[in-house]
Design a protein around this nucleic acid. Structure first.
Lengths: 325, 325
DNA sequence: CGCTATTGTGACAACGTTGTCCAAGCCATA
DNA sequence: TATGGCTTGGACAACGTTGTCACAATAGCG
């Protein structure tokens, strides 16, 4: 900047004024400075700028579990889009579901003085962020609530969606429903399971824990569990899979066996149309989830200091897949 | 930091030494400083640090077309993983295939003094980056080559993969092959098309431009084009779709019609196993692509100043999908 | 013509760090 | 006791920028 000032024959401060479009600079000087800027290829260093001004550095952080997962990729895409509308860069970090790593990454982002933070929580204690929040870094949690912290949160209606889906199964006469889930340790899974129970009880269908299988991590495991349940005594006539990875495995196995069990799956997926089996999915708008959260974050960044909000977005039942063979 | 120094009763510089694990500080003082640090909740500001030291700021930038696209999401995931191994943060920005936006984002990232840049090019002129490269910001291009710039590049063997796939179709006796592509303006599409021609010519199969359809943007369009070709005179007996979005549409339409045309698709996709149609895909390792590029970038960051390299990764033919009904 | 507004410009310090350099203290050796 | 080396701590400037303030130049007024 000093070089530019020398070349243009003005003071360093005048250069600063020009590059910041500050008022009260003679048009002629502006011209000279701009000429010098482009001659020297000068570009303002936003880091130094935000160091001095203490103001925003036009960066927000997004913490997710795993970028390569389409759910989080969609979130990242929507967040990036909103960020871009606010001329803000997005830093993305993956916690890989590891609470220790999550804490380290969040601290690191705060140390970088991001303007705000979007967090899909992995751990269940986020009280270490309280100091940051009080220090003025706005944060919005999405998909899952923060642990031990009152903060803005945007969630899906996991429980309501599961309740509506299972109610439909029950109304269709199913009394034995196999339920497959990834991990009961995850908030969304617990909510979905609670929703299923909500729907069973009033219909007088007993909640049979032998039909509920935790720890189903991938399609292969799902296929195996379906086999077990179908070959056991008093097999289920319907399956409720609590995420789309599981749904794929369930369908594959049912298709292979030529079974006609009903399938209800939480999470939609793009190729669902192509799947050779009829199923009902509990769908939701992932982009909307992220968009809502990011917009809330920018409200906070722009100074909204009102009481923390919790927003719950609706889910929808959708019929998918090819009709049975 | 000054507050910490006061509380610990040492000089500011000593605090700096402690937080940087510098040698030659009395263990007792280290203790006092650390106590003060945790009491005051002090955290080093890496931005100010890198401003002063002029050294790395432990951040690399990744420019892709669109985060929500699984291909780019996978790239981002692999890049993030390698970055993490180097204790480096990853900034991700989407160009949305817009060259002007690409230029702006790349300039912005350079202004933020990232340690290096990973770029999936959207535009076809990147000469504006020459100044940055000379200024010492390492860059690696992946999936597509940079335009008008000699730089490190990691590519897939698009042409070879297409050649091998089409050769197999030809060897199976197909003489009329419908080819569907997204946009001839994209480098990878041109390469794949060239590969197809490479395989047709030596087998004496004419390259019939009426069978080549550009501008097929989504599965629906692909289905429509398949219909047209099949209903036209002298319909194709095989289809080569140049990306997986198109493959989905092609299969859906063929399945609907009960056709038994052969399908060759560029790009693998996770649910390919479930697809109710036999197909051959040209697969490749997206994670490996990104990993190779990111590791090359870190070599450069760590001081490798050798001549720019171009790495081409192989593709593989894989049989996928259910056997015909 | 002197007086005050108004506008344009620049000197200076500060943001939070760290590199450089010097000084003080200590010990060992001659 | 004097000399030298080694360890440790601190003063200072600098990284690239901007906020504050003061000053100079111009215009407007009686």
């Amino acid at each position: 900047m000093a070089d530019v000032a020398d070349l243009a024959g003005v003071s360093l401060k005048t250069v600063s004024r020009v590059v910041n479009n500050a008022p009260h600079v003679q048009p002629e000087l502006v011209e000279r400075v701009l000429a010098a800027v482009s001659e020297l290829g000068f570009r303002r260093n936003p880091l130094a700028s935000s160091l001095r001004s203490g103001q925003t550095n036009a960066t927000i952080g997004l913490l997710i579990e795993e970028i390569a997962n389409p759910f989080y990729a969609t979130i990242a895409g929507a967040a990036a889009e909103v960020a871009r509308q606010h001329d803000t860069m997005l830093i993305i970090a993956s916690s890989e579901e590891d609470p220790a790593r999550e804490e380290q990454l969040l601290r690191d982002m705060c140390a970088r003085r991001v303007d705000g933070l979007l967090v899909v929580p992995a751990g269940d204690d986020h009280s270490f962020l309280r100091a940051e929040i009080e220090l003025g870094t706005p944060m919005v949690f999405l998909d899952r609530p923060a642990g031990g912290l009152l903060a803005d949160t945007v969630l899906l209606d996991n429980r309501g969606g599961a309740r509506a889906g299972v109610r439909r199964l029950v109304e269709a006469g199913h009394r034995r429903i196999g339920i497959l889930l990834d991990s009961i340790g995850v908030y969304t899974m617990r909510e979905r399971l609670d929703g299923a129970q909500d729907a069973l009880a009033p219909a007088g269908v007993p909640y049979d824990t032998r039909l509920v299988r935790d720890g189903v991590r991938d399609p292969l495991a799902a296929a195996r569990v379906v086999s077990e349940l179908l070959e056991g005594p008093d097999p289920p006539t319907a399956f409720f899979s609590l995420n789309n990875r599981i749904t794929l495995g369930v369908i594959e196995e049912l298709h292979r066996r030529g079974s006609d069990a009903a399938v209800l799956g939480f999470d939609d997926f793009d190729v669902a149309r192509l799947v050779p089996y009829p199923l009902t999915v509990i769908a939701y708008d992932t982009r909307e989830l992220a968009r809502t959260a990011t917009e809330l974050l920018f409200h906070r960044i722009e100074g909204d200091r009102s009481w923390p909000r919790t927003v719950v977005l609706p889910t929808e039942l959708v019929a998918r897949g090819a009709p049975p063979r």
